[in-house]
Simulated assay, not measured.
Amino acid sequence: MQVPTPNRRGRVEREEQPLIGESGAFLAVLERVSHAAALNRPLLIVGERGTGKELIAERVHFLSPRWDQPLVKLNCAAISPALLESELFGHEAGAFTDASRTRIGRFEQADGGTLVLDELATTAAPVQEKILRVIEYGEFERLGSSDTRRVDVRVVGATNEDLPALAAEGRFRADLLDRLAFDVITLPPLRERPEDLMPLAEHFAMRMSRELGRELFAGFSPRAVDQLRAWSWPGNVRELKNVVERAVYRQPDADTPIDGVEFDPFESPWRPGSDDRAAASDRLPDDLKGWLAEREQAWIERALAECGHHQKRTAARLGLTYDQLRAALRKYGISR
Protein backbone atom coordinates (compact mmCIF):
# COMPACT_ATOMS: atom_id res chain seq x y z
CA MET A 1 0.00 0.00 0.00
CA GLN A 2 1.19 3.54 -0.72
CA VAL A 3 0.43 6.09 1.93
CA PRO A 4 0.00 9.61 0.53
CA THR A 5 0.42 12.69 2.66
CA PRO A 6 -2.05 15.60 2.61
CA ASN A 7 -0.57 19.06 2.22
CA ARG A 8 -1.58 22.06 4.33
CA ARG A 9 -4.63 22.62 2.12
CA GLY A 10 -5.71 19.01 2.47
CA ARG A 11 -4.66 17.88 -1.01
CA VAL A 12 -2.71 14.67 -1.42
CA GLU A 13 0.86 14.91 -2.73
CA ARG A 14 3.30 12.17 -3.66
CA GLU A 15 6.53 12.13 -1.71
CA GLU A 16 9.96 11.80 -3.32
CA GLN A 17 10.57 8.76 -1.12
CA PRO A 18 7.05 7.34 -0.69
CA LEU A 19 5.64 5.36 2.17
CA ILE A 20 5.02 2.12 0.30
CA GLY A 21 4.74 -1.30 1.89
CA GLU A 22 2.61 -4.21 2.94
CA SER A 23 4.94 -6.01 5.34
CA GLY A 24 3.80 -6.57 8.89
CA ALA A 25 6.66 -4.50 10.31
CA PHE A 26 5.82 -1.55 8.08
CA LEU A 27 2.07 -1.66 8.73
CA ALA A 28 2.70 -1.91 12.49
CA VAL A 29 4.70 1.33 12.32
CA LEU A 30 1.91 3.10 10.45
CA GLU A 31 -0.57 1.98 13.07
CA ARG A 32 1.67 3.30 15.85
CA VAL A 33 2.00 6.60 14.01
CA SER A 34 -1.75 6.98 13.57
CA HIS A 35 -2.30 6.29 17.25
CA ALA A 36 0.42 8.68 18.46
CA ALA A 37 -0.43 11.51 16.04
CA ALA A 38 -3.64 12.43 17.85
CA LEU A 39 -1.86 13.28 21.10
CA ASN A 40 -0.21 16.61 21.79
CA ARG A 41 2.99 15.08 23.10
CA PRO A 42 6.64 15.03 22.02
CA LEU A 43 7.65 12.06 19.94
CA LEU A 44 10.93 10.39 19.01
CA ILE A 45 11.47 8.63 15.69
CA VAL A 46 14.47 6.31 15.50
CA GLY A 47 15.85 4.45 12.51
CA GLU A 48 18.83 3.78 10.31
CA ARG A 49 19.74 6.25 7.58
CA GLY A 50 17.41 6.09 4.62
CA THR A 51 14.48 4.47 6.43
CA GLY A 52 12.15 7.46 6.00
CA LYS A 53 12.23 9.14 9.41
CA GLU A 54 11.33 12.52 7.94
CA LEU A 55 8.37 11.09 6.06
CA ILE A 56 7.08 9.45 9.23
CA ALA A 57 7.45 12.76 11.06
CA GLU A 58 5.43 14.48 8.34
CA ARG A 59 2.76 11.83 8.63
CA VAL A 60 2.58 12.42 12.39
CA HIS A 61 1.92 16.10 11.72
CA PHE A 62 -0.67 15.67 8.97
CA LEU A 63 -2.64 13.09 10.95
CA SER A 64 -2.68 15.31 14.04
CA PRO A 65 -5.11 18.09 14.97
CA ARG A 66 -2.30 20.48 13.95
CA TRP A 67 -2.40 19.36 10.30
CA ASP A 68 -3.44 22.82 9.03
CA GLN A 69 -0.77 24.66 11.05
CA PRO A 70 2.93 25.10 10.18
CA LEU A 71 5.19 22.09 9.75
CA VAL A 72 8.79 23.24 10.21
CA LYS A 73 11.79 20.93 9.76
CA LEU A 74 15.42 21.41 10.70
CA ASN A 75 18.43 19.14 10.24
CA CYS A 76 20.49 19.98 13.30
CA ALA A 77 23.63 18.43 11.84
CA ALA A 78 23.52 20.75 8.82
CA ILE A 79 24.07 23.88 10.92
CA SER A 80 27.20 24.73 12.86
CA PRO A 81 26.86 24.51 16.66
CA ALA A 82 27.58 28.24 16.92
CA LEU A 83 24.57 29.12 14.74
CA LEU A 84 22.13 26.38 15.78
CA GLU A 85 20.87 28.24 18.86
CA SER A 86 20.06 31.32 16.77
CA GLU A 87 18.41 29.15 14.11
CA LEU A 88 16.14 27.53 16.69
CA PHE A 89 15.31 30.45 18.97
CA GLY A 90 15.99 33.52 16.83
CA HIS A 91 17.98 36.62 17.71
CA GLU A 92 17.62 40.36 18.14
CA ALA A 93 19.46 42.91 16.06
CA GLY A 94 22.98 43.34 17.40
CA ALA A 95 22.93 40.08 19.37
CA PHE A 96 26.20 39.08 17.70
CA THR A 97 28.43 40.09 14.80
CA ASP A 98 26.49 40.30 11.53
CA ALA A 99 23.13 40.24 13.35
CA SER A 100 21.94 43.38 11.58
CA ARG A 101 18.23 42.67 12.00
CA THR A 102 15.86 40.73 14.22
CA ARG A 103 15.16 37.20 13.10
CA ILE A 104 12.59 34.76 14.41
CA GLY A 105 13.71 31.17 14.97
CA ARG A 106 12.22 27.83 14.01
CA PHE A 107 10.24 27.54 17.24
CA GLU A 108 8.39 30.77 16.50
CA GLN A 109 7.89 29.74 12.88
CA ALA A 110 6.29 26.50 14.08
CA ASP A 111 4.01 28.14 16.66
CA GLY A 112 0.71 26.24 16.68
CA GLY A 113 2.18 23.43 14.60
CA THR A 114 5.00 20.88 14.62
CA LEU A 115 8.78 21.25 14.68
CA VAL A 116 10.77 18.27 13.39
CA LEU A 117 14.35 18.18 14.68
CA ASP A 118 16.39 15.71 12.62
CA GLU A 119 19.85 14.51 13.76
CA LEU A 120 18.91 15.60 17.26
CA ALA A 121 21.87 13.77 18.79
CA THR A 122 24.30 16.31 17.28
CA THR A 123 23.01 19.25 19.36
CA ALA A 124 25.18 20.71 22.13
CA ALA A 125 24.21 20.55 25.81
CA PRO A 126 23.20 24.27 26.12
CA VAL A 127 20.87 23.94 23.12
CA GLN A 128 19.41 20.73 24.55
CA GLU A 129 18.66 22.59 27.79
CA LYS A 130 16.76 25.32 25.94
CA ILE A 131 14.84 22.75 23.87
CA LEU A 132 13.84 21.00 27.10
CA ARG A 133 12.53 24.26 28.53
CA VAL A 134 10.39 24.91 25.46
CA ILE A 135 8.96 21.39 25.60
CA GLU A 136 8.17 21.63 29.31
CA TYR A 137 7.01 25.24 29.62
CA GLY A 138 6.65 26.61 26.10
CA GLU A 139 9.06 29.43 26.96
CA PHE A 140 12.35 30.76 25.58
CA GLU A 141 14.26 33.96 24.89
CA ARG A 142 15.77 35.06 21.63
CA LEU A 143 19.52 35.60 21.61
CA GLY A 144 20.26 39.12 22.77
CA SER A 145 16.90 39.53 24.53
CA SER A 146 15.65 39.06 28.08
CA ASP A 147 11.99 39.02 27.03
CA THR A 148 10.39 35.64 27.54
CA ARG A 149 8.33 34.42 24.62
CA ARG A 150 5.73 31.69 24.61
CA VAL A 151 4.96 29.21 21.84
CA ASP A 152 2.75 26.17 21.38
CA VAL A 153 4.86 23.67 19.41
CA ARG A 154 4.84 19.90 19.19
CA VAL A 155 8.44 18.67 18.96
CA VAL A 156 9.21 15.53 16.98
CA GLY A 157 12.81 14.38 17.21
CA ALA A 158 14.50 12.06 14.72
CA THR A 159 17.81 10.25 15.02
CA ASN A 160 19.79 7.23 13.89
CA GLU A 161 21.78 7.21 17.14
CA ASP A 162 21.30 5.18 20.32
CA LEU A 163 20.16 8.05 22.53
CA PRO A 164 19.91 6.02 25.77
CA ALA A 165 23.55 4.97 25.29
CA LEU A 166 24.57 8.58 24.64
CA ALA A 167 22.68 9.70 27.75
CA ALA A 168 24.44 7.03 29.83
CA GLU A 169 27.78 8.38 28.55
CA GLY A 170 26.78 11.97 29.41
CA ARG A 171 26.66 13.01 25.75
CA PHE A 172 22.90 13.67 25.67
CA ARG A 173 20.71 15.15 28.38
CA ALA A 174 18.83 12.37 30.15
CA ASP A 175 16.00 14.73 31.15
CA LEU A 176 15.48 15.81 27.54
CA LEU A 177 15.47 12.17 26.48
CA ASP A 178 12.82 11.45 29.10
CA ARG A 179 10.57 14.19 27.74
CA LEU A 180 11.07 13.26 24.08
CA ALA A 181 10.52 9.58 24.74
CA PHE A 182 6.85 9.89 25.64
CA ASP A 183 6.67 7.42 22.79
CA VAL A 184 9.39 6.11 20.51
CA ILE A 185 8.68 4.86 17.00
CA THR A 186 11.51 2.72 15.67
CA LEU A 187 11.49 2.18 11.91
CA PRO A 188 12.42 -1.25 10.54
CA PRO A 189 15.31 -1.35 8.05
CA LEU A 190 14.56 -2.43 4.52
CA ARG A 191 16.29 -5.80 5.02
CA GLU A 192 13.56 -6.63 7.56
CA ARG A 193 10.84 -5.73 5.04
CA PRO A 194 11.48 -8.23 2.19
CA GLU A 195 7.84 -8.08 1.04
CA ASP A 196 8.19 -4.36 0.37
CA LEU A 197 11.40 -4.50 -1.68
CA MET A 198 10.02 -5.13 -5.16
CA PRO A 199 6.95 -2.85 -4.87
CA LEU A 200 9.32 -0.03 -3.91
CA ALA A 201 11.79 -0.93 -6.67
CA GLU A 202 9.05 -0.99 -9.30
CA HIS A 203 7.68 2.34 -8.07
CA PHE A 204 11.08 4.01 -8.41
CA ALA A 205 11.67 2.37 -11.79
CA MET A 206 8.34 3.50 -13.22
CA ARG A 207 8.80 7.03 -11.98
CA MET A 208 12.30 7.21 -13.48
CA SER A 209 10.94 5.86 -16.76
CA ARG A 210 8.36 8.66 -16.83
CA GLU A 211 11.07 11.20 -16.10
CA LEU A 212 13.00 9.89 -19.11
CA GLY A 213 9.91 10.25 -21.30
CA ARG A 214 9.43 6.52 -21.73
CA GLU A 215 5.93 5.12 -22.17
CA LEU A 216 6.53 2.00 -20.10
CA PHE A 217 8.90 0.16 -17.81
CA ALA A 218 9.76 -3.32 -19.09
CA GLY A 219 10.42 -4.72 -15.63
CA PHE A 220 13.29 -6.59 -13.99
CA SER A 221 14.68 -9.91 -15.18
CA PRO A 222 14.78 -12.83 -12.72
CA ARG A 223 18.52 -12.27 -12.39
CA ALA A 224 18.05 -8.62 -11.44
CA VAL A 225 15.31 -9.53 -8.96
CA ASP A 226 17.65 -12.07 -7.34
CA GLN A 227 20.35 -9.39 -7.07
CA LEU A 228 17.97 -6.92 -5.45
CA ARG A 229 16.66 -9.51 -2.99
CA ALA A 230 20.16 -10.69 -2.06
CA TRP A 231 21.51 -7.24 -1.18
CA SER A 232 21.43 -6.19 2.48
CA TRP A 233 20.59 -2.50 1.75
CA PRO A 234 22.67 -0.68 4.37
CA GLY A 235 21.33 2.60 2.97
CA ASN A 236 17.74 1.31 3.07
CA VAL A 237 15.03 2.86 0.87
CA ARG A 238 17.20 5.81 -0.15
CA GLU A 239 19.89 3.43 -1.43
CA LEU A 240 17.28 1.31 -3.24
CA LYS A 241 15.98 4.42 -4.99
CA ASN A 242 19.46 5.34 -6.24
CA VAL A 243 20.28 1.80 -7.39
CA VAL A 244 17.02 1.37 -9.31
CA GLU A 245 17.00 4.81 -10.91
CA ARG A 246 20.62 4.35 -12.00
CA ALA A 247 19.76 1.00 -13.59
CA VAL A 248 16.78 2.45 -15.46
CA TYR A 249 18.57 5.44 -16.94
CA ARG A 250 21.55 3.29 -17.99
CA GLN A 251 19.24 0.87 -19.82
CA PRO A 252 19.44 1.93 -23.49
CA ASP A 253 16.45 -0.11 -24.66
CA ALA A 254 13.22 0.77 -22.85
CA ASP A 255 11.55 -2.40 -24.20
CA THR A 256 14.10 -4.74 -22.60
CA PRO A 257 13.85 -5.74 -18.92
CA ILE A 258 16.72 -4.68 -16.67
CA ASP A 259 19.03 -7.67 -16.39
CA GLY A 260 21.44 -6.43 -13.72
CA VAL A 261 22.02 -3.65 -11.22
CA GLU A 262 25.13 -1.93 -9.89
CA PHE A 263 25.28 -1.38 -6.15
CA ASP A 264 28.54 0.59 -5.96
CA PRO A 265 28.69 3.45 -8.49
CA PHE A 266 32.33 4.09 -7.51
CA GLU A 267 33.46 0.66 -8.67
CA SER A 268 35.96 1.21 -11.48
CA PRO A 269 39.45 0.03 -12.47
CA TRP A 270 40.39 3.73 -12.54
CA ARG A 271 39.06 4.51 -9.10
CA PRO A 272 41.52 6.77 -7.19
CA GLY A 273 43.59 4.70 -4.79
CA SER A 274 43.10 1.51 -6.79
CA ASP A 275 46.59 1.58 -8.38
CA ASP A 276 48.18 -0.52 -5.66
CA ARG A 277 45.40 -3.09 -5.85
CA ALA A 278 45.64 -3.20 -9.64
CA ALA A 279 49.43 -3.60 -9.53
CA ALA A 280 49.11 -6.42 -7.03
CA SER A 281 46.53 -8.17 -9.19
CA ASP A 282 48.84 -7.94 -12.23
CA ARG A 283 51.60 -9.94 -10.52
CA LEU A 284 51.60 -13.66 -11.19
CA PRO A 285 50.94 -15.54 -7.95
CA ASP A 286 53.50 -18.10 -6.80
CA ASP A 287 50.70 -20.44 -5.72
CA LEU A 288 47.76 -20.08 -8.06
CA LYS A 289 45.50 -22.53 -6.20
CA GLY A 290 46.23 -20.90 -2.85
CA TRP A 291 45.68 -17.41 -4.30
CA LEU A 292 42.35 -18.42 -5.84
CA ALA A 293 41.24 -20.05 -2.59
CA GLU A 294 42.05 -16.90 -0.62
CA ARG A 295 40.10 -14.74 -3.05
CA GLU A 296 37.14 -17.13 -3.06
CA GLN A 297 37.02 -17.22 0.74
CA ALA A 298 37.29 -13.41 0.97
CA TRP A 299 34.41 -12.88 -1.49
CA ILE A 300 32.20 -15.43 0.26
CA GLU A 301 32.81 -13.79 3.65
CA ARG A 302 32.08 -10.35 2.19
CA ALA A 303 28.86 -11.55 0.55
CA LEU A 304 27.77 -13.20 3.80
CA ALA A 305 28.29 -9.95 5.69
CA GLU A 306 26.41 -7.89 3.08
CA CYS A 307 23.49 -10.34 3.15
CA GLY A 308 23.26 -10.45 6.93
CA HIS A 309 24.61 -14.05 6.97
CA HIS A 310 21.46 -15.23 5.20
CA GLN A 311 22.81 -18.19 3.24
CA LYS A 312 20.15 -18.36 0.52
CA ARG A 313 20.52 -14.65 -0.22
CA THR A 314 24.31 -15.03 -0.21
CA ALA A 315 24.12 -17.88 -2.70
CA ALA A 316 21.93 -15.78 -5.01
CA ARG A 317 24.27 -12.82 -4.63
CA LEU A 318 27.24 -14.95 -5.76
CA GLY A 319 25.38 -16.82 -8.48
CA LEU A 320 25.72 -20.13 -6.65
CA THR A 321 23.21 -22.77 -5.68
CA TYR A 322 22.48 -23.19 -2.01
CA ASP A 323 24.31 -26.54 -1.98
CA GLN A 324 27.36 -25.04 -3.69
CA LEU A 325 27.56 -22.31 -1.07
CA ARG A 326 27.18 -24.80 1.76
CA ALA A 327 30.03 -26.86 0.31
CA ALA A 328 32.25 -23.77 0.13
CA LEU A 329 31.43 -22.84 3.75
CA ARG A 330 32.48 -26.32 4.86
CA LYS A 331 35.58 -26.18 2.70
CA TYR A 332 36.84 -22.97 4.30
CA GLY A 333 35.46 -23.61 7.78
CA ILE A 334 33.33 -20.46 7.63
CA SER A 335 30.66 -20.20 10.30
CA ARG A 336 28.49 -17.30 11.45
Rank of each mutant, 00 (worst) to 15 (best):
2 Q>K: 06
4 P>Y: 07
7 N>D: 15
10 G>N: 12
13 E>F: 09
19 L>P: 03
24 G>S: 09
30 L>Y: 00
32 R>N: 12
35 H>W: 08
35 H>F: 08
36 A>T: 05
36 A>Y: 09
37 A>T: 04
40 N>Y: 06
41 R>C: 06
42 P>E: 09
42 P>I: 04
45 I>P: 01
47 G>D: 07
48 E>G: 13
49 R>E: 10
49 R>F: 07
50 G>T: 06
50 G>D: 06
51 T>E: 06
51 T>R: 02
51 T>V: 11
52 G>P: 02
56 I>R: 05
63 L>M: 10
65 P>R: 14
68 D>T: 05
69 Q>P: 05
70 P>H: 12
71 L>D: 13
72 V>W: 06
73 K>M: 12
73 K>F: 07
86 S>W: 00
86 S>C: 01
88 L>F: 02
88 L>E: 06
92 E>D: 14
100 S>M: 10
102 T>G: 09
105 G>W: 00
118 D>W: 03
119 E>L: 01
127 V>F: 02
128 Q>T: 04
130 K>V: 05
136 E>F: 00
139 E>S: 03
140 F>S: 08
145 S>R: 06
145 S>A: 11
147 D>A: 14
150 R>V: 13
154 R>N: 07
155 V>S: 05
157 G>R: 04
159 T>W: 09
159 T>Y: 07
164 P>A: 06
165 A>W: 02
167 A>W: 05
175 D>F: 03
179 R>K: 11
181 A>S: 15
185 I>L: 14
186 T>W: 01
189 P>W: 04
190 L>I: 11
193 R>T: 13
194 P>G: 04
195 E>Y: 06
196 D>V: 03
197 L>P: 08
198 M>A: 10
200 L>C: 07
201 A>K: 10
202 E>H: 13
204 F>W: 11
205 A>M: 11
205 A>E: 06
208 M>Q: 15
208 M>R: 15
208 M>P: 01
209 S>E: 04
210 R>E: 14
214 R>P: 02
217 F>I: 01
218 A>T: 07
224 A>V: 12
225 V>R: 15
228 L>R: 01
231 W>L: 13
231 W>I: 13
233 W>G: 02
233 W>Q: 03
237 V>S: 07
237 V>D: 05
242 N>M: 13
243 V>T: 14
249 Y>K: 14
250 R>D: 08
254 A>K: 01
260 G>Q: 10
261 V>D: 11
261 V>P: 11
263 F>H: 13
266 F>L: 13
268 S>E: 07
269 P>E: 13
275 D>R: 12
280 A>I: 05
287 D>P: 05
289 K>G: 03
290 G>P: 05
293 A>K: 03
295 R>L: 13
296 E>S: 12
297 Q>F: 00
298 A>V: 00
299 W>A: 09
302 R>T: 11
302 R>C: 01
306 E>W: 14
309 H>G: 10
310 H>E: 15
317 R>K: 12
323 D>L: 10
325 L>H: 09
330 R>C: 00
334 I>L: 09
